[in-house]
Amino acid sequence: MEQAIPTLTNILVLSSMYILVALGFVLLFNVVGIINFAHGAIYMLGGYIGFAFSVVCGLNQWLALLLTVLVIASFGLFLERFCFRPFAGDFNRTVTICIAIIVILETGVNIIGGTKILTFPAFVEGILRIGHVSVSYERILTFAIGAILLGITIWFIKRTKWGQQMQAVSQDVEAAALQGINVNRISAFASALGCGLAAIAGCLMGAYMGLSPFMGDFILVKVLIVAILAGVGSIGGIFFAGLVLGVIDAVFPLFISGAASSAVAVAIVIVILLIRPQGFFGHEMEM
């Protein structure tokens, strides 16, 4: 019982972290049709650029976060135009390009930023204590931002013209183009939005856990699991899938030691996919 409330907060924070990063990944996948394996590296880059703005340039961390989102979103535009669009529909080349981006970004940051552990300055400090429960404001903020961004993204996709165009492109590119939708513009926008979301997650996690050039490698596996569990084409499903993975990752280490907990978590994902190959909310995809 004593562990119940800390575990509950861990579930919420972990889930929101996964949801935040997975959102950008799924946007790219659904709209641009790219499985962006470099998404973890972009998330890492976001954290480092945020660090550069806030610590090296001495800007306020909220301003640094905003500038980071703009920079990484621009990087997303660049990636879509020069790395993804020329190879759209070619899985092998896209994977190769993503791996190249990972190596370039990780090695570049490792050389420029050094191997020293860096941290993005905390957005909020202090610990909330209510009775036996204690949660840092940082964790509450991470959860809150994750939840708010998810809400905004869903609203944006469902309620705005651009969002509806994104949905149309994700359902059928040719039909969307015939309807007069500028597919390239929508793809570029989705890429910028996806990378921007990754940048927010990178800064929040950089403040919470510290920055490392390889932090993206670990999150990428989680993001892939969330995206697959949520199901192809589902944005709202990410919330549920992120929560499931959050529960698995927060609860299993309490009962199963070490790497075995990760193995069991992945095994559960396999079982879920055996029962529902399309994920929780996705539709069957033709490859």
Binding site: V13, R139, F218, A259
Partner: peptide, 22 residues
């Protein structure tokens, strides 16, 4: 108690801390 062991790919160490605390 038993050694508290964590995986190399652990992202959030809060569950490990909760276990240590318990």
């Amino acid at each position: 108690g038993k050694p508290i062991v964590y995986s190399n790919d652990t992202l959030d160490f809060s569950p490990i801390a909760a276990k240590i605390n318990a």
